[in-house]
Amino acid sequence: MAPEPIDTYLDDLLARLRGSAAGVRRTLVEAEAHLRDAVDEQVGRGVDVHEAQLLAIERFGSAAQVAAVANRSSAGRTAGQVVGALSWAAGRMVAVGLAAVGLAAVVARVLANLTSTSFVFGSPADAVFPADRCAHWLAVQPTATTCAQAAMLENSSDTLLLYVGGALLGLVVIGIAFAICAVVRRVRRAPRTGVVLPPAVVPAIGATVFGGVGVALLGAALSDVVVAGAWGRGLWFVDAGVSLVVAVVYLVRFARSVIDVAPGAAVA
């Protein structure tokens, strides 16, 4: 038995619609209700059911035409909304970056305890320090017996303080900004970021940014090993490692957003 024209039409429309599953389903349900109402009206006037269906479809518009309008609308993206959504996503990414910086400081301290403080925070082997700087470092690091050791310990302390302190301060500032934005978005009924931007966009940007930074830091760390011209080569490795781990997390999110879930597979 051949399918009804309305069923064929709805199948065609479904194949052309883009957007969230909920949005597509809603459009489809409304389209079917509308078409069936139109058929009922025509049949009530004595029109044959098959003819009524064709007439209803003709009045509704071609699947291509309706889908084109619906897809443009479901994207729901004015320039302002896109800028807002990207700004919101960028803010979240900066927050992730700040958290990664704080985490890197803690990991560096752990690595220093496991390996050597010199590897993680040490000064370049051929570094020569002014006497007044040495005096200052030896004064604030009383356990150090040499200028290089004092410089290393001071670098370790400063790194932890600046990384963690800076990250916490940044997170507080971003948290306040987010809270204000959330209130404004709620008042203005702005759509969520995930509704404005395709779900793969933010993970793709995150993977690219953090992956790029991680590779750059790793390159710097490796060149530091070769050149031995900068402080704390181990710290560079830690920063690169944390950045690459964050990139992998974004990469997994990206993959999950673009790869179809196998039928019957559990969805987290």
């Binding site: 389209a31 518009g61 443009r72 609308s73 479901s74």
Partner: peptide, 17 residues
Amino acid sequence: MPEGTVYPSLHKLENEG
């Protein structure tokens, strides 16, 4: 007009509150 093209406008108006 093509009746199906009206629904996206209804959805948009709803999104705008």
